[in-house]
Design a protein around this nucleic acid. Sequence first.
DNA 1: CTAGAAGTTGAACAAATGTTGAAGTCAAGG
DNA 2: CCTTGACTTCAACATTTGTTCAACTTCTAG
Lengths: 160, 160
Amino acid sequence: MTSATPAVLTTGPVSKPDSEPTLTVSDLARAGGIAPSAVRFYEKHGLIASKRTRGNQRRFHHVDECLVKIIRVAQRVGLSVAEIREQMSDLPQDRADITIDDFLRVRHRLEREARQRIQALTDVLNDFTTDQKLCEIPPKNPTDTRNVATTQRAVGPRKP
Amino acid sequence: MTSATPAVLTTGPVSKPDSEPTLTVSDLARAGGIAPSAVRFYEKHGLIASKRTRGNQRRFHHVDECLVKIIRVAQRVGLSVAEIREQMSDLPQDRADITIDDFLRVRHRLEREARQRIQALTDVLNDFTTDQKLCEIPPKNPTDTRNVATTQRAVGPRKP
DNA sequence: CTAGAAGTTGAACAAATGTTGAAGTCAAGG
DNA sequence: CCTTGACTTCAACATTTGTTCAACTTCTAG
């Protein structure tokens, strides 16, 4: 994914009950607008799951296309892979059992996350206009006595 | 910086015209609520600058305290070190020449950035409620025909 | 002057998010 | 049978933002 992908992605309805997984890594990558290496990466980190053919190749369900799209949205929100895995951890392990409600639940959580992150940024803006006197420097010309306002308030935890 | 730093940080007015830099790495680190290693890191990446003593030790101006605080705010906004360096690149190379207006200019740019990032997140939320039919799965019970709505629209450029 | 605190550089490590390449396997077509 | 394309695994590399360590040097106070 080097170039910007328009990604309108109107996935048609999955017609068959989809009991057997049929999509290859490349199929899923193309459908999700990501690289095959990313598909493998996501599987390795437990975001998606596949069955294997006799020849040890991965096969994905069509519903995994939805999962990949959700992963991409979650990344736009700013979640890490670990966080995304957590958000998705209560989806039915058997992907064929996933229902609309499962997606709605995940979606609501992502919405909450997005709102929280918007709030954190809004707090930064408020700090800009609220807190005076973080940076005071002696004015070069005596007519300008204003000061720059900024302050940090430990919004998100930082533990490297 | 492992534990949460309250960081009220009401830097008093810099009394002296501050022509000679006097703060050591540790001084600046303490004032800015960061580790000495971070101070060196920022200097190495061109966010701050120092003069050296005869013995090759760094000495910073008091105004660098403000710069560090601005860096921290910029990080809260989500800027990378490279982006922060760019935002600060038009500050007077001679730190003693920095004026309030220089800070105001940087601040305004950071505000714009923050608003843009808020907008990007808001777009995600809008996509949630606007776009239908990203994930359609065959309903298990025929009564529920709703669909999950999501779509990505390439908000921020990705160039690794 | 001398000891100890604090500074110096450079390299290595860490976690996150993948990409790329090597070497090998599998299925299909001619 | 052989080639070709797509798949496999594993390891190495790349980037970001620092931290930590080793081996020295400098500064400061007694």
